[in-house]
Design a protein around this nucleic acid. Structure first.
Length: 756
DNA sequence: GAGTTTGAAACT
DNA sequence: CAGTTTCAAACTC
């Protein structure tokens, strides 16, 4: 199954401008860039408050890029394409590009108007360590409205096109092309170079302000160059490109992190030779490393946008073949669906340094916010291993990884030899990439990918091997046919690996843990290569924690260890197994739920599926309109607990029992006084916990501060120099913790009273 | 921490 | 499908 249907692919522009030229511009002195190459009136920087939609074309007018007159997009040889469909909700986008005039480049003659609100700024950040977002080689970033979408296409040296698609709701200003107004509307694009990676940040509104502030604080260099491009149908367009270079990389992780959730899917594919790219759309900052030669397209649909998801096929294409993007209906309640498909060559070095910005190192997480809305399989790129894709299966909260064999189409992007000191952007060469993505299926939910400490793989089938960190899929491809038919029922994290020599046809089913067990470097690459900060604070926090901790640690902390003794952790009794995860840091005995017992595990999975085809599907389905509609798929069968204890799966899931349940003496219904009381107690306990946590944090900081100030004394005094106040807080904390610990028993006592 | 209770999963 | 057994988590002491 293809991620993007041919029809959808046809929608994508055939050509994408190469952004390398932009990169060159970055390095140029700011004043250098500031001067518009041409005598045309210098475009004004678009005020943030302006709502004029603008089309930004980074494609140099002089470039020889092939461009179809009808196709607004510029294609690059092997670029990454980023499609962004910003919504008003994307506060994080600071797209500054604004065109006050008919800002359509030659390449975008038919672009009617750009609906990008003036207050949105597109920020492209480049980390110094990594290839510039805009490479020196001729390249171009193009913001163009496609239909009602604004597409920003950029190519790095490696030829990764970047496209941004704006939501239909963004109406281009009347002043845009077609009007032929003498006054051209300048479009501004901020390219920020940070120490780490190239980043494209799209934020909107106030967040833009915040990001700007951050940048200023960081002593960003701002390079502005105005490019004048003749619009076939409209008057001259002036595009103003601002490239800012941050002296430090803090900007990336800066406050911008407040950015709103970006909904969309990201499909990235890197060519074998190209280094993994990092794409992050975060609430605060989105980064898209464009240096990678592979093609990557990212589609982000704004929350407020008409629930549309833009899916871009990564498939390589013949030079003339147009790249295609499709906008699909997407429910984005919470927002964010990210479809990421990345294919990187084994030789492509995983890029470290992703940790520079925590936001960027977020593990690729796919969250299908929508409840009951159409959902799609999420494909998460495995950075290092070529042809490895993680797939979110519909109805399954598990992650699947599929290895895809990329077609042999030449994808190497070539940087044009032309050197540009001129702000003008050079056209990128046509990209030839073969699409490796085949699956686009609605999914119920997505889960974050956990990384587990890799275990040595002994299986004969080694699917993926990367130069830096070999990744191996353990399952024999031959086992796949048995399970694959029921893909949706596969256990979480099942990995689909192509059989040797079978190209894309073979699949191996592996548990999610296999994915997570990919060596750390690979994980880093993965996260860095394509990360979207899906905007929810929780997710952001999760990412941060991941950054702070080893992935294995983070994963292990997310789940309670099992204590299985007799099931070998190969039955659904085991929560780890039931969740499609490998046991990690568990207390189980004789555990077979690991890579050392692949065959047994597979058999067990198959047996479970034989008994229950949906055994690995989440029991708690998502309701139509939020949690209130969540219900247990099977219902509980409680008899003695009154469905008010965690024995009850409904209660445990914090949902009410439904008609599906066959419970006796159920008290877990809306009007149940017992339930209400219990909920109140639980809420109170939760609040208490939060307060205590906050207090603990505060105390810790105080202690730390105190230690810092009293280091000498502490060294000699054995750390007993806490001030009375400090000791008092510690005492209070201890007491609070004690109280907290007593809550469960208190609630239990209350329940006993109720029951009596 | 040991023992009990509970209900889902597995089995017949 | 119903009844029974197994199992591990939840719970109690």
């Amino acid at each position: 199954m293809d991620v993007v249907s041919p029809e959808l692919n046809s929608l994508l522009p055939d050509e994408i401008m190469d952004t390398e030229s932009i990169a060159m511009e970055e390095e140029l002195p700011a004043e250098h860039l500031a001067a518009p190459p041409q005598s045309e009136p210098e475009p004004l920087q678009v005020p943030m408050e302006t709502e004029l939609p603008e089309i930004v074309s980074l494609c140099p007018a002089t470039t020889s890029m092939k461009m179809t007159s009808t196709d607004a997009q510029c294609s690059t040889s092997s670029g990454t394409q980023l499609l962004l469909a910003p919504s008003n909700l994307i506060s994080g986008t600071t797209t500054s590009a604004k065109t006050t005039g008919p800002a359509v480049t030659q390449n975008l003659p038919k672009i009617p108007s750009v609906t990008v609100p003036a207050n949105h700024q597109l920020i492209i950040n480049k980390l110094s360590g990594t290839p510039a977002v805009v490479s020196k080689s001729p390249g171009a970033a193009v913001l163009k409205p496609e239909g009602q979408k604004l597409l920003v296409a950029g190519l790095s040296k490696t030829g990764q096109p970047i496209m941004l698609a704006l939501p239909h709701t963004w109406n281009k200003p009347a002043t845009t092309q077609g009007t032929g107004d003498v006054k051209a509307q300048p479009t501004q694009i901020k390219l920020m170079t940070t120490v780490g990676k190239p980043v494209i940040a799209v934020s909107s509104g106030s967040q833009l302000m915040g990001s700007s502030t951050t940048l200023q604080a960081q002593q960003l260099k701002t390079l502005q160059f105005t490019k004048k491009a003749a619009v076939s149908t409209a008057g001259p367009m002036i595009t103003k490109l601002i490239i800012t270079k941050a002296l430090n990389n803090k900007g990336l992780s800066s406050p911008a992190s407040v950015a709103p959730v970006v909904t969309g899917r990201v499909v990235t594919q890197s060519t074998p030779v190209t280094p993994p790219r990092n794409i992050t759309f975060g609430e605060t900052i989105s980064t898209v490393p464009q240096n990678t030669s592979g093609n990557s397209k990212v589609a982000i649909s704004p929350l407020k946008s008409p629930s549309k998801l833009t899916v871009v096929s990564v498939a390589s294409q013949s030079p003339n073949s147009p790249q295609k993007s499709v906008t699909l209906p997407l429910s984005v309640a919470l927002g964010q669906q990210i479809l990421t498909v990345q294919q990187s060559a084994a030789t492509s070095p995983a890029k470290a340094g992703t940790s520079q910005s925590t936001a960027q190192t977020v593990k690729p997480v796919q969250t299908v916010g929508g409840v009951g809305t159409s959902q799609f399989k999420t494909i998460i790129p495995l950075t290092t291993p070529p042809n490895v894709q993680q797939i979110q299966v519909p109805g399954s909260r598990f992650h699947y990884v599929r290895l895809v064999t990329a077609t042999t189409g030449s994808s190497t992007a070539q940087s044009s030899g032309s050197t540009n000191t001129n702000p003008s952007i050079h056209p990128a060469k046509p990209v030839m990439m073969n699409a490796a993505v085949r699956m686009s299926v609605p999914i119920v939910s997505a889960q974050t990918i956990k990384q587990v400490v890799p275990k040595p793989l002994t299986s004969a089938a080694q699917v993926v091997t990367t130069s830096q960190t070999p990744q191996r899929l353990i399952m024999p491809a031959t086992h796949l046919p048995q399970i694959q038919p029921n893909l949706t029922s596969l256990p979480p994290g099942t990995v689909l690996a192509p059989a040797h020599g079978s190209g894309n046809m073979g699949y191996a089913v592996l548990p999610a843990p296999y994915v997570t067990q990919i060596p750390q470097p690979a994980f880093v690459t993965l996260t860095s290569s394509s990360t979207f900060s899906t905007a929810t604070p929780i997710q952001t926090q999760a990412r941060l924690s991941l950054n702070g901790l080893s992935t294995s640690e983070a994963a292990s902390r997310q789940r309670k260890p099992c204590n299985c003794t007799r099931s070998q952790c190969l039955k659904l009794y085991c929560d780890c197994f039931a969740n499609g995860e490998f046991c990690n840091n568990c207390n189980c005995v004789n555990c077979f739920n690991n890579l050392d017992h692949e065959s047994e595990r597979l058999k067990a999975i198959k047996a479970c599926l034989d008994r229950n085809p949906v055994a690995f599907k989440p029991k708690i389905g998502k309701g139509k309109e939020g949690e209130s509609d969540r219900r247990h798929s099977k219902g509980c069968n409680c008899k003695k607990s009154g469905c008010l204890k965690n024995y009850c799966e409904c209660y445990e899931a914090k949902i009410m029992c439904s008609s599906m349940c066959k419970c006796m003496g159920c008290k877990n219904f809306e009007e149940s006084p017992e339930r209400k009381t219990l909920m109140h107690l639980a809420d109170a306990a939760e609040v208490r916990v939060l307060q205590q946590t906050a207090a603990k944090t505060k105390l810790s900081s105080q202690i730390s501060d105190l230690l810092t100030r009293t280091t000498p004394a502490i060294t000699s005094g054995g750390g007993k120099l806490l001030s009375p106040a400090g000791r008092g807080e510690l005492c209070s904390l201890t007491q609070a913790q004690s109280v907290h610990a007593s809550w469960p028993s208190a609630i239990a006592g209350f329940l006993r009273v109720l029951n009596s």
